[in-house]
Design a protein around this nucleic acid. Structure first.
Lengths: 115, 115
DNA sequence: AAACTATATGTCGGTTGGCGACATATAGAA
DNA sequence: TTCTATATGTCGCCAACCGACATATAGTTT
């Protein structure tokens, strides 16, 4: 009954980067926020509403999973660790393929006008 | 006072394909619909609401322009021809660059966990 | 002549996901 | 003691997409 990754596409930019960030390993919300920011040279700053809203949604969709919390003492509220699920990983791969296809079409020499 | 193309990004998938289709030359709405469909091997079928809503919006944003109508007799309601504006062309280019950057980051070898 | 099909444009209400503002909590440094 | 970075969360708003419906016409088929 495995869901079709295509059903989740296209991803919006913030969702794409959240999944991409988790593809590098377990992470909690705020760490995702900071990683996306540095990965994009400060260009993409996820708002709190976007970040935590997406985490809730992606959990419900089964694209990410909770991990046992990391208990090393740190400032702030208790961290909640997440990772990609198999499904989430498949969706991310599918999205990357979609983007590659889009780009290869976009770079195509100008076709004859069909009209 | 030229607007910054970045202000229009990211484009959603339908909008991207509408602009891309117009980059190949003047076209009316229904022709865009059909071209996007064939370009994507039938995978992307714009809904009417999306298509005509986007055309109205893109006109207001100055990313596309109306052209004098093509008067060769044809079935259906009178055709309305559109083309990319200079701004629209710049936005499309900027979006393609954004996608390329995103993809090159996505293909990067797994970075060390920062957490 | 009537019906059907492809072409063509448009509106409307509902849904989704992102956004900014606000709220709350804590460890460590100043 | 205060300030800052860290950390999670909610709420209402808005933009864009979506499907269903409405309308119109030229050309072909029955």
């Amino acid at each position: 009954m495995a869901l079709d990754p295509q059903d989740f596409l296209p991803l919006r930019e913030p969702t794409f980067f959240i999944l991409l960030s988790l593809a590098n390993g377990r992470k909690h919300g705020y760490a995702i926020l900071k990683e996306v920011e540095s990965l994009s040279n400060g260009k993409i700053v996820l708002s709190n509403g976007t970040l935590y809203g997406a985490l809730t949604r992606l959990m419900e969709q089964g694209l990410i999973e909770r991990l046992p919390d990391d208990e090393t003492p740190a400032p702030g509220l208790p961290r909640k660790a997440y990772c990609l699920s198999q499904n989430g990983s498949a969706v991310l791969d599918a999205e990357i393929s979609r983007l590659e296809n889009m780009l290869s079409r976009a770079r195509l020499p100008v076709a004859e006008e069909t009209q």
